Simulated scan of single mutants.
Amino acid sequence: MTPYWLILGIGIIGSLFERPRVLSTRVPVLPVMIFAMVIIALFVGLRYQIGTDWYTYLVYYVDVSRLDIRGAVEYGDPAYTLLNWLSSRLDFHIWFVNLACAIIFCAGLYVFASGQTRPWLTLTASIPYLIIAVAMGYTRQSAAIGLVLVGLHFLLRRQGVVTFLVFSVLAATMHKSALMIVPIALAPLVWRKWWAIPLGLAVGAAGYFLLLRDELSALFDLYIASEYDSAGALIRVGLTAVPAAIFVAASSRMRMPVVEREIWLSLSLFSLAMVPAVLLSPSTTAIDRLGLYLIPVQLITISRIPDLLGGSEASSKTALFACLAYCAGIQFAWFSVGAYTYAWVPYYNYLQIWLR
Rank of each mutant, 00 (worst) to 15 (best):
T2A: 08
Y4Q: 00
Y4C: 05
L6P: 09
I12V: 15
I13H: 14
S15I: 01
S15W: 00
F17R: 03
P20A: 04
S24M: 10
T25K: 12
R26E: 15
V27K: 05
L30V: 09
I34E: 10
F35D: 11
I40G: 03
F43A: 11
G45T: 05
G51F: 02
T52H: 01
Y60V: 05
Y61T: 09
D63C: 02
S65R: 03
L67D: 05
D68L: 07
G71Y: 08
G71D: 12
V73P: 14
Y75C: 14
G76S: 11
Y80E: 13
L82R: 11
L82H: 09
L83N: 15
L86R: 12
L86H: 10
F92P: 09
W95L: 15
F96E: 06
L99E: 08
A100K: 07
A100M: 10
I103D: 11
Y110L: 08
F112S: 00
R118M: 00
W120Y: 10
L121P: 04
L123C: 06
S126F: 06
I127C: 08
L130F: 15
I132K: 08
G146Q: 08
V148K: 02
L149Q: 04
H153C: 03
L156K: 04
R157Y: 01
R158M: 00
R158I: 03
R158H: 07
G160P: 03
V161M: 08
L165T: 09
V166T: 04
S168W: 05
A171N: 07
L179N: 02
M180N: 02
I181R: 13
P183V: 02
L189E: 01
V190Y: 01
V190E: 00
W191C: 15
W195I: 05
L199M: 13
F209M: 00
L212A: 03
D214K: 06
S217Q: 11
A218G: 06
F220W: 10
A225S: 15
D229E: 13
D229R: 13
D229C: 14
G232F: 02
G232S: 14
L234S: 13
L234M: 10
R236Q: 14
V237H: 06
G238R: 07
T240S: 13
V248G: 03
A249F: 13
A250C: 10
R253P: 01
V258S: 10
E260G: 04
R261C: 03
E262F: 06
L269N: 03
M274R: 12
V275F: 04
V278H: 00
S283K: 15
T284A: 07
R289C: 03
I295G: 00
I300E: 06
T301V: 06
P306W: 01
G311M: 03
E313D: 14
T318G: 13
L320M: 04
V337Q: 12
V337L: 05
V337H: 10
Y342V: 15
P346F: 11
P346W: 08
L351P: 09
Q352W: 14
I353S: 05
